[in-house]
Computed example of a mutant assay.
Amino acid sequence: MHQPEAYPSPVLSTRLFLRERDLRGEPAALDAAPSAVRVELLGGERTIAITVVPAEAEPAAATLTGAHQAAALCDLDAPPGTPELALLVYAALQRARIWRRAAVVSSEPSLAAAPLKLSALAQRGLRAAPLDLAMHRLFTACDEAGCALLAARFVAEAAACLSRHAEAFADNAWCRAVHAGRLAREQYVAALANTHQYVRYTPRLLARAISVCDDEPLRDHFTRHFRGEQKHDRLIEADLRYLEADVEFVLRAMAPWGPTLTFMSVQESMVAFHQDLTCFLAAPFVAEGLAARVGPLVLDDLAGNIRRWGYREPARATRFLVSHAREDGGDDGHWSATLAVLARLLRDDTTQQRFLAALHLAADAFTASYDAYADYLTLFTPPLLADP
């Protein structure tokens, strides 16, 4: 007869706080590059701690097939049966989730039992589990206070994920061409034209979200956003006309390029098919977050490229980008408003995992779209020795 699983006692409802440091003892930001981090939980009967590290950097796990897709837990310092252990390990594995690892591996005997329930691997002494399942089990093993402590970190975790995407986006082929002064007019026009394909639908998608939203504060957020997104497509059209692009083609006949369509599909499916308004926020979270973080870094160099094409007033070709770098950034920008909304919506592990999946899908597509705007049209790239 099947016996109920013996889960450890719930996390104690005491004042607890987390401290995360690198191996030099310095505070480790959530968006730091993957490396060993010591996570400590203070405030209980004693401080407990564990180290999370990319599996390929942990000697015991480095030779595993797929080590680069896993995170390792080691150096556990907690008495057997410590009730706060699930909370500590979950917090440590949030870093693995930010690193986009898919599995957790450890040789720690205390982690083999429930709730983590690591399965034995062929390599002696090592056990592992899929990361999503492991984190679900850990979260459900925490009591209400423990879950609240972890949920309070969810927005910071999402922001850290986006910060790592911003690094990748800032190094995409299109941005590299801008900074090198080798962006072709056609590559910029492609970016504007494809952006128009989804910006013109933003008010309609927001209207759809408003119509199916039963959460009044969230509906108010969408309403404010709706008002702020009116006629942004007209800014793009004005930029394109100044650059003498075929605006009628963009308006009447153009189909979005594949990567652009992927980005569009994320938000369209979330609001129209799934009616998952939390995940619907992932697309603007990405687009506005990247605009706020990367936009200001490219505008000056972009103006230099536009002058090289023979246009004396770059400001007349960058109205849309300048507007979004200004409106989406700052403490009162669209992105900050989205953060405040998400802080209320992201309250359990399942919602967080789903939101992060949508975030990564949107961010990967957004970065791939800008790579495409440059890579698909490299034949227009000016020669290295071309005169400015």
Results as ranks from 00 to 15, higher is better:
residue 200 R to T: 01
residue 168 A to N: 03
residue 139 F to L: 08
residue 132 D to G: 04
residue 146 G to R: 00
residue 146 G to D: 06
residue 211 S to F: 07
residue 216 E to N: 11
residue 216 E to P: 11
residue 131 L to Q: 08
residue 153 R to M: 09
residue 171 D to A: 12
residue 172 N to D: 12
residue 151 A to L: 00
residue 193 A to L: 02
residue 167 E to W: 13
residue 168 A to R: 15
residue 144 E to R: 09
residue 172 N to M: 04
residue 202 T to V: 15
residue 176 R to P: 00
residue 159 A to V: 12
residue 97 R to T: 10
residue 98 I to V: 15
residue 188 Y to V: 06
residue 168 A to G: 03
residue 214 D to E: 14
residue 153 R to G: 08
residue 120 A to H: 09
residue 191 A to C: 01
residue 213 C to W: 01
residue 226 F to W: 11
residue 185 R to V: 03
residue 176 R to C: 07
residue 185 R to N: 02
residue 162 L to I: 05
residue 201 Y to E: 14
residue 132 D to E: 13
residue 91 A to Q: 12
residue 113 A to P: 00
residue 187 Q to I: 00
residue 193 A to Q: 08
residue 114 A to R: 02
residue 190 A to W: 13
residue 102 A to S: 12
residue 162 L to F: 10
residue 142 C to T: 10
residue 148 A to H: 05
residue 134 A to I: 13
residue 189 V to G: 08
residue 94 Q to T: 14
residue 138 L to A: 06
residue 111 L to Y: 11
residue 121 L to C: 00
residue 132 D to K: 05
residue 225 H to V: 04
residue 184 A to E: 08
residue 107 S to C: 06
residue 102 A to G: 10
residue 209 A to R: 12
residue 212 V to I: 15
residue 101 R to H: 13
residue 183 L to T: 09
residue 125 G to C: 09
residue 173 A to C: 09
residue 154 F to M: 07
residue 228 G to S: 11
residue 107 S to R: 13
residue 123 Q to N: 01
residue 208 R to L: 11
residue 165 H to M: 13
residue 203 P to H: 03
residue 138 L to D: 07
residue 124 R to W: 05
residue 102 A to F: 06
residue 155 V to E: 13
residue 118 L to V: 13
residue 160 A to S: 14
residue 176 R to L: 08
residue 216 E to K: 14
residue 155 V to M: 13
residue 166 A to C: 11
residue 92 A to C: 03
residue 226 F to P: 01
residue 179 H to V: 03
residue 212 V to N: 10
residue 198 Y to M: 00
residue 122 A to T: 11
residue 100 R to P: 07
residue 91 A to I: 04
residue 158 A to L: 02
residue 212 V to A: 10
residue 213 C to P: 03
residue 122 A to C: 01
residue 106 S to C: 02
residue 170 A to K: 05
residue 201 Y to Q: 12
residue 174 W to K: 06
residue 185 R to L: 08
residue 202 T to S: 12
residue 154 F to C: 11
residue 106 S to H: 08
residue 148 A to Y: 02
residue 132 D to H: 05
residue 104 V to S: 04
residue 146 G to V: 04
residue 161 C to Y: 05
residue 119 S to Y: 01
residue 138 L to F: 05
residue 202 T to P: 00
residue 173 A to V: 10
residue 152 A to C: 04
residue 111 L to E: 09
residue 196 H to G: 00
residue 148 A to T: 12
residue 190 A to C: 14
residue 193 A to K: 00
residue 161 C to L: 10
residue 138 L to I: 06
residue 219 R to Q: 07
residue 147 C to Q: 14
residue 206 L to P: 04
residue 151 A to S: 15
residue 171 D to N: 12
residue 148 A to I: 03
residue 92 A to D: 03
residue 114 A to D: 01
residue 196 H to I: 01
residue 163 S to E: 10
residue 161 C to G: 14
residue 99 W to Q: 15
residue 121 L to E: 06
residue 97 R to P: 00
residue 105 V to H: 12
residue 139 F to K: 00
residue 176 R to A: 07
residue 119 S to L: 06
residue 208 R to Y: 11
residue 207 A to I: 02
residue 92 A to Y: 04
residue 161 C to W: 01
residue 121 L to D: 02
residue 217 P to F: 10
residue 126 L to Q: 02
residue 210 I to P: 01
residue 170 A to C: 03
residue 146 G to Y: 00
residue 127 R to E: 05
